[in-house]
């Protein structure tokens, strides 16, 4: 769980590794680029707004790719837009993360067969870290995806590649159901 959950006792001294502190700082201020492409963007905006309040995760949309850590591809990527998406991705400073939101950007969605102008999956042009299924996904799913990105950042270490971090995430990922059950039982007891 998070660093602060450990509780700070013993005269405010906390012993941890540099990796842990760096990752905690990065995952607690994950700034996405503020751009939406279709109806998924409406759900993304709803997630940013007060009901779901992404700011409690430190997630706050930036209006420039140069200030962003995360690209949420929210919606149908057309062929015309694909080149712009590549350019925006290249303008983002590393380390950068990509979250593909909704069926359209995952695989073309409803346009997979007759969409002459639709890119069949944004992973054809930029590397995607987390896919969120849904058409469009509810804010809860998006938050789930964003927490997966945070978990990926938590797996990173100085000197290991993104591919290794993703492998580590697949092996060591936390099953949220297990955590929920455990917390519930703790409350009941």
């Amino acid at each position: 769980m998070g660093l602060l959950d450990a509780g700070i006792k013993n005269h405010n001294v906390l012993v941890t590794s540099v990796d842990n502190v760096l990752n905690w700082a990065r995952l607690s201020s994950l700034w996405p680029m503020g751009f939406g492409l279709a109806c998924c963007a409406i759900e993304m905006m709803a997630t940013n707004a007060s009901n779901y309040d992404l700011e409690r995760f430190g997630i706050f949309p930036r209006s420039s790719p140069r200030q962003s850590d995360l690209m949420i591809v929210a919606g149908t990527v057309t062929m015309k837009m694909a080149e712009r998406v590549i350019r925006l991705y290249e303008q983002m400073p590393e380390p950068r993360y990509v979250l593909s939101m909704g069926s359209c950007s995952n695989c073309g969605g409803p346009y997979w067969e007759h969409g002459y102008h639709v890119l069949k999956g944004v992973d054809r042009i930029i590397p995607v870290d987390v896919y969120v299924p849904g058409c469009p996904p509810r804010p809860e799913s998006l938050i789930g995806g964003l927490m997966k990105v945070q978990e990926l950042i938590r797996m990173e270490q100085i000197g290991i590649s993104r591919a290794d971090a993703l492998k580590k995430l697949a092996e060591k990922s936390v099953d949220p159901q297990f955590v929920i059950e455990r917390e519930r039982k703790a409350v009941e007891a």
Binding site: M79, K80, A82, Y116, H117, K120, R124
Partner: peptide
């Protein structure tokens, strides 16, 4: 459509192009 698009998409005999600027178009 982009200015360099090939063909006219709503014609009944339109065939989807294989690639656009090096990006594969069909599923």
């Amino acid at each position: 459509c982009p200015d360099d698009w090939e063909g006219f998409p709503l014609r009944k005999d339109y065939k989807v192009q294989e690639s656009y600027h090096g990006i594969k178009v069909p599923y």
